[in-house]
Design a binder for these strands. Structure first.
Lengths: 359, 359
DNA sequence: GCGCTGGACTTTAACGTTAATAACAATCGC
DNA sequence: GCGATTGTTATTAACGTTAAAGTCCAGCGC
């Protein structure tokens, strides 16, 4: 057995490098590298000694050097978009946190992209510039839509990427994670049916929104299955004012709505305002549901029944997906469809209601 | 004059490197490097020729190589924290966008940190780990407080950093950007005074919050200057329920409040709920103001009068500040105190009110 | 004509890592 | 006992960049 005089190189200070560890452990730099990246190539005793030295010196591999050598920065890029102040939802804020958390847990870091304006041209340019400068391992896209240029661009460059939002073109080769808006809206509809409502309207988004269509169909299916009429529907922009006006229309109908299932909390808040203007009590005379569980939903009085997206799972699955792609996993890309949770609050409950939003 | 046969090396494909540019331009790699970093070291004609070749080939310097060589990654680190779902404000979301936008404009990228839990120990560890692995150029901290460990840690490591939130210890050597909560609350108080209110309460945060103290003092000063009583005040946690209860107390006082200036939109929403429970109309019988211009503030009915932080300016100034520090600018670190904007909505206006929130 | 200075550019070496290859020793088959 | 095999560790070279040092030459003073 080797005696104490092994592994007694100098103790370095400041940034510790591979060769400093190597020197102290009495091996070559390559062996230290192997200890960390290919431990099975080393004799168990050597491996143990090296790892002990690594721990002793607190060595951490230099990512710049690794990136240069391996053409892999352990960075995942994500573009943050401006938060529209008129939108109630914190969804993207929570998403970013969840994504980052999972990325860090997997040994990656998130690097943020910026693109001015709405168009995808600017955004694609930002991706390309970043990719030219640094070997980003993967991209995560949010808010995909039909015929998304960004998807085409990233694919043409051969970069791994996954999207929050399914493939709307029926493209199976895309790795995506999404939340089932159809099932969510269906659950909301079934919930108001269970409260005894039979005249249920839908305040939804414009037809060009794929997400909006999904949500609308959830409502449609639930109504049709029960033989309920589906004539009360609106397809409007996602603003409070549009929701308000749509609600007024549906309450002015010959046979007025007693429940309004909305595609977003923003629209639902418009509906609540319309009810207020008519002196109708939410939940009691007219049930209202939203989508996304924005902070406002919990804060308004009465609380707004809404659907909560399991955003932490979305983040985890997306990182999982890009990890598989980066690893060149031969399995076909993941498609994950998650179920939102119905959060029931006063806006859809007829019963006597406590003064606070949720029991 | 040199004829056409200069600068005719091969046109490379894929990633373009310095030496490829050099070869094509007929110079050494170092000259290309100098053309980009020290243009004055080159003869004008050579400089021009090299820059033309750089443009022709679309060369972008490899950041990993630069980082390795220069010990500078052009990365600025920022820790994202979980968004509390009970909080109304999108402030951090908007802040991150603004910060990133300015960072990118200045040639940097934002890299996100993650730390589990609330404590700063975990956060400091995350910073240190990141710093060990990669030469992050600077850090940006948010939500600073008195005796902030993070500040001490970053300073002891000698890393440039700036904070969103002033130095609460009276430390002049800290570079910070902050929004004047005192002036903001004062403006809100003066606004309700101008509406004719004389009995003005303050629903504020607990005494340990430095930000809360600042905001409280704005209200205090405004009242004192006008000889108005300051007995109606609450120091509570930042939740809707606490705001609601505080409002009830102040409305049950022998001489009840007719205006409530709150330290946050969340508290203000609690106040609005209390008014609702008593059948009091916001603005008409009791004026209410919040702070932060959360999306909810615009969406509730009537709209909530609140203070908007100039968050894009905050981001810009913070990047400016760290740029100066990185450049080793000898001037003393920047302190920037910005003024919030009072957004007047129905909750503080007695007059006849249109059905939508803002005129 | 000789050394000297300064400008324009090049060469060398290094940042820290790891794939590829080489070197070496022990083990095996026959 | 000798080539082949296998297992272990070391050496070399390269990723793309740039500071530092070096080369080369024109212009200058004397």
């Amino acid at each position: 057995m080797e005696s104490q005089h092994v592994s007694r190189g100098p103790v370095p200070h400041g940034h510790v490098t591979l060769s400093q560890v190597a020197q102290r452990a009495g091996v070559s730099a390559q062996s230290v590298s192997n200890a960390l990246n290919n431990p099975d190539r080393l004799a168990p005793a050597t491996l143990e000694r090296i790892l002990a030295t690594v721990a002793e010196l607190g060595y951490e591999p230099n990512l710049s050097a690794r990136a240069l050598r391996n053409r892999s920065s352990h960075l995942i890029a994500f573009k943050v978009r401006p938060s529209r102040p008129d939108k109630a939802s914190l969804l993207m804020d929570e998403f970013l946190y969840a994504l980052n958390r999972s990325a860090v847990a997997a040994g990656y870091h998130l690097i943020l992209c910026h693109a001015e304006g709405e168009g995808s041209t600017e955004e694609i340019k930002a991706y390309r510039d970043l990719l030219k400068k640094t070997p980003v391992d993967a991209f995560v896209l949010a808010e995909t839509h039909r015929n998304d240029d960004r998807v085409a661009a990233l694919r043409s460059w051969g970069v791994p990427f996954a999207t929050f939002g399914r493939s709307w073109d029926g493209d199976d080769s895309l790795a995506w994670v999404d939340v089932d808006g159809r099932a969510g809206t269906r659950a909301a509809t079934e919930h108001v049916v269970a409260q005894g409502h039979r005249r249920i309207g839908h305040v939804g988004w414009l037809a060009e929104s794929e997400i909006g269509q999904e949500r609308r169909e959830g409502w449609l299916e639930a109504c049709r299955e029960r033989g309920l009429p589906t004539d009360l529907q609106a397809a409007v922009a996602d603003t409070l004012e549009d929701g308000r006006q749509a609600a007024h229309r549906m309450l002015d109908a010959p046979e007025p709505a007693t429940a309004l299932v909305c595609a977003s909390d923003t629209l639902a808040l418009g509906v609540l305002r319309a009810l207020h203007e008519r002196g109708l009590r939410p939940g009691v005379e007219v049930a209202v549901t939203g989508f996304d569980d924005s902070p406002t939903a919990a804060l308004v009085s009465p609380g707004l029944t809404t659907l909560r997206q399991p955003i932490d799972v979305v983040g985890r699955q997306l990182i999982q997906a890009v990890e598989n792609l980066i690893a060149g996993d031969p399995r076909e890309p993941q498609h994950v469809l998650l179920q939102p949770d119905l959060i029931v609050r006063g806006s859809s409950l007829p019963g006597p209601r406590p003064s606070t939003a949720t029991p």
